[in-house]
Simulated scan of single mutants.
Amino acid sequence: MTTPPSLTSPLAAHIREAITAAGGWIGFDRFMAMALYTPGLGYYARDARQFGLMPAGVKGGGSDFVTAPELSPRFGQALARQVAQALAATGTTEVWEFGAGSGALAQQLLEALGPQIRRYTIVDLSGSLQARQRERLAAWGDTVQWVSQLPAQMQGVVVGNEVLDAMPVQLLAQVDGVWQERGVVMAPTLSTSSDALPPEGGRVSLGAARRETHDDVFLYADQPTALRPPLDVAGSHDYLTEIHPQAEAFVRTLADRLQAGAVFLLDYGFPEHEYYHPQRSMGTVMCHRAHLLDADALQDVGEKDITAHVNFSGIALAGQEAGFQVLGYTSQARFLLNCGVLAGMEDVPLAERVMVQKLINEHEMGELFKVIGFAVDSKACPWSGWQALGFAQGDRSHTL
């Protein structure tokens, strides 16, 4: 399904203006932020359906991807057991969810936890998604509230499913043995391509081979940088990867604001030694549209999701340095199994059992997706040493 030009053209124009104002080049993190979150135009800020089982062209479809809560309510029910334990262990009664999407996970947690939750707060920047969440969660009345920014102090259990992967990343490229930051420039037209150059000192890379003849297309261009990946990458071959300052800053902010409670973040990614493996030379940025994947983040801007895998070692280190205690790190499959996702499965229909298998099978979501947990550890609220249910078996914290 093609998005109407009224959505994409103003967004492309907005990005072009930003590139011009910045002197002809912007970092990929800024481009990604505008592509996803520009009010009224960005992928998550426009009035379109992103989440669901069925793509466009299928009856009842029109979505671009499916997340775990849409696959089966057992995802939220299993997570609720962990949340319930964390609420009791930390003496709190509030749940905070970041990036609540369709509201499916919130609904599952609210149904499962009932009066254990005094308040459920959703932090979501998208006005259109907030509207859908309000409709879905209307039955819980004032128990559910929405905010667009965090208060100076908060308490409770924080959950975030596929939040970190949507946070803008910076691209680093080693080309001919030299590290550069990969950003975005405006694509020249066919008639002027020989004269169009990136800013002084930069070089056009990768996308430069695609010479488009219209103005709404962008190209990658490299600039000198002192930035480096957190691990040395063996070999002198060309290498593209990401660093995650915004995701790490997000965790540090949580550690600063959360006075009592715990955090559980679920997403796809790797520990650092796998993330920066010499053979992972093309990076992890990818796009989702109509349940198909592609790697061209600069094409059809605003019409598709842009994500990057998570470096969980960086997330863990950011949390520890900011005062969090790491509760554990494991695969989504092991976490859900520890939380009882298979309890009573013999009594459920085959179709639901198939969906649950997608959550835990290694070749589906079970191994690619990971879960990391944190607890507040401070003088005001010292960590009591409780064993988080989801990491009771198969904890991989030692691999981070």
Rank of each mutant, 00 (worst) to 15 (best):
D195A: 08
L137C: 03
Q180Y: 15
E362Y: 06
G235K: 04
A249H: 13
G344W: 06
L11W: 12
S236F: 15
R132N: 09
L41W: 13
A375R: 02
A375K: 01
V263M: 10
I26F: 07
I372C: 03
S331N: 02
I26S: 13
A221I: 11
Y220N: 09
T192Q: 13
A208F: 15
G201M: 07
V301Q: 04
Q82Y: 00
C339V: 13
V147K: 08
P229R: 05
N311Q: 10
P39D: 06
E303W: 03
A173I: 06
D347N: 12
A260V: 09
S126T: 00
A13I: 12
Q325I: 02
L400C: 09
W179F: 04
F264C: 01
P5K: 14
L172G: 05
A187E: 02
R228I: 09
L7A: 10
M282T: 08
T121M: 04
R74E: 00
V178E: 13
V178R: 14
A22G: 10
G344E: 01
Q153V: 13
G177Y: 07
P245H: 12
L109G: 08
V158S: 00
W140C: 04
S205N: 10
D142Q: 03
R289S: 07
S126N: 02
W140S: 11
V204Y: 06
L150N: 10
G385V: 01
Y239K: 05
L359C: 01
Y44H: 12
D347G: 05
V376P: 05
E321L: 15
F31C: 13
A308W: 02
R396V: 04
A13L: 06
T241E: 04
G385K: 02
F218M: 03
I315Q: 00
E97H: 00
I26G: 14
P271I: 10
